[in-house]
Design a protein around this nucleic acid. Structure first.
Lengths: 329, 329
DNA sequence: TTGTAAGCGTTATCAC
DNA sequence: GTGATAACGCTTACAA
């Protein structure tokens, strides 16, 4: 469809009565005689010319494309991250190619290979493959999980988040705490949520349990735990820190089923703090990840990459936010 | 970082002791003597060579990149659509460049311009700009809204969805129906939800009201309506069809606040039917959009584009699904 | 079946 | 300041 010969720089040069060199300089902001500039601009206008980024990138070895590798978009944290990364890249004149892996190692590997093939300028990756092999030819910034020596990892301050959760619950009167997690057993920054939580509990001398289920993907064992530790509507604990908001919501649901009131009987803190699409705020009391800054930092770091000392880990500050599943402090 | 000279096809040819032509043919599946093929493959392996898609696309005028233009990722329907479009494209060897417009016309225009500049092979767009100017040089498939003569629009069967909602409510005993919508006043396929609803109500001879608020972006007028039409916990209506699941959830919340029980006093049907990330099913009784097929069809249509007669509108079947905000049928 | 070479649309390096 | 012109890595006639 359409008149199939889009104008090239040659056409512009001919139209303007100058050489392609001048057109190129004009386009790239290199000083050119004012008269020439005007004629080139007129020609560009007239022909509706657009520079061909492929040809340009072919020459300059820059494609202005960055890949974002993500397990899924079905979780608000991931989709918000994708949105913010797009924004951060676009702001800098880059495009974002989205690759969704569905938590599959093979898909992750394929994605990496595609990146090289497409000469993309960088990768921002949130992956679960413990031994993913990033091509050394392209800079990588990972999110939430360290991926080898030469890559920088950007994440929230998960340790501090764990502390804040414990401290928040304690400050609201909890004395028998519980931590819950379900998910991947690949080591990542996310693990530090538990460690920070534990550390704060110990520092305050508050009793706690750690319930970490990494081998199964279902919440069943967690539900069972709640059942077994609730007698006549009275649970053995009065505060739960869940590894994600999603988990917190699932537990809230289960507790209600068991006749346990949230937050009166048990207070609940999640992690992520992404605004719910219905109500415009996080769906539970939570540790808020600074997603926009995560994205900004990842992008920024990607482009600083070539310079000397890049940190291996950058942690961004989190904060506690109350949203109905905790009492007044 | 990394030894900065990635191997080119020339390097492979030299290594294999053949010409670049042979290497190229080998890579593109054009018959080559078996011995040559083996040597080329060995050389590729040894040098860890990957074809440079930019150079290739530069020559063939195909970039194997398609742009997806979306208002946001913050709504499950959009993020699921993005995920499915990525999958459908990847399956065919294409990459997806994601562009998020935040419902901004200018951003939409910028996106379109970027597409041309990057010589992308197509656009799949869900936009709100009534007079968006797609460059004629690239095929476009729009979702939910018609965008000019030469583009195909893919959408759910919104009219049928509206009918199903009305029929579903009526079959469950509702006799005083209400339709609610809030949002953009740009004409789109989505409008047909209301029309289908109305048509079914009339066909069944059931009383109904249409509450359509397109000029403001807040739910306030809808909330006010509910208040004004509820007396001592008894509303003037017994079934509401909301234009989206999101709206349905907001209304459910408000009704509960007003002491109206859902579904006992008022039944609620939404539209979209994307699984909630917490519970793995739609959050309310709803008309389910076939998002995966929407994506597949959009991609398929994009590539058939060059052939003669492409339809101007393709509607995909929807279905009613009960999820707690309606009674048993 | 294979090698050779032109050309895709830019940028960058020369002379001028 | 500007105009030629040689790359960039690949595909594809065309010749062998």
């Amino acid at each position: 469809m359409g008149s199939d010969a889009l104008p090239t720089m040659n056409d512009v040069a001919r139209e303007a009565g100058v050489s392609v060199g001048t057109v190129s300089r004009c386009i790239n902001g290199i000083p050119v005689k004012d008269a020439s500039r005007r004629r080139v601009e007129a020609a560009i206008q007239k022909l509706n010319y657009r520079v061909n980024n492929y040809a340009r990138g072919f020459k300059t070895n820059k494609t202005y494309c960055v890949a974002l590798i993500l397990p899924s978009l079905g979780i608000p944290f991931f989709s918000l991250l994708a949105e913010e990364v797009t924004a951060a890249l676009n702001k800098r004149g880059y495009r974002m190619v989205l690759m969704v892996t569905n938590y599959d190692s093979e898909a992750e590997a394929t994605s990496v290979s595609l990146v090289r093939q497409n000469k993309m300028d960088g990768i921002i990756a949130l992956t679960y493959n413990p031994n993913i092999d990033f091509d050394a030819s392209v800079p990588v910034v990972s999110i939430d999980r360290h991926c080898g020596e030469s890559t920088t990892c950007v994440s929230s301050d998960n340790f501090r988040g764990g502390q804040l959760a414990a401290e928040g619950l304690i400050a609201r009167g909890c004395r028998k705490l519980l931590f819950m997690r379900i998910g991947s057993d690949v080591a990542s920054e996310v693990d530090k949520r538990a460690i920070g939580f534990e550390s704060a509990c110990r520092a305050r001398g508050v009793a706690y349990e750690m319930l970490i289920v990494n081998d199964e993907a279902t919440t069943l064992p967690l539900f069972r735990y709640l059942e077994e530790h609730t007698h006549a509507g009275v649970p053995d604990f009065d505060g739960i820190f869940c590894n994600t908001d999603r988990l917190a919501l699932q537990m809230q649901h289960k507790l209600t089923e068991l006749g346990v009131r949230v937050p009166e009987d048990v207070q609940l803190v999640g992690f992520d703090g992404v605004n719910d699409y219905v109500f415009g705020c996080p769906p539970c009391s939570t540790i808020v990840q600074p997603v926009a800054q995560l994205a900004e930092t990842a992008v920024e770091t990607l482009f600083v990459k070539d310079s000397a000392a890049v940190p291996s880990l950058i942690c961004l500050p989190v904060r506690f936010e109350a949203h109905g599943t905790t009492k007044e402090a």
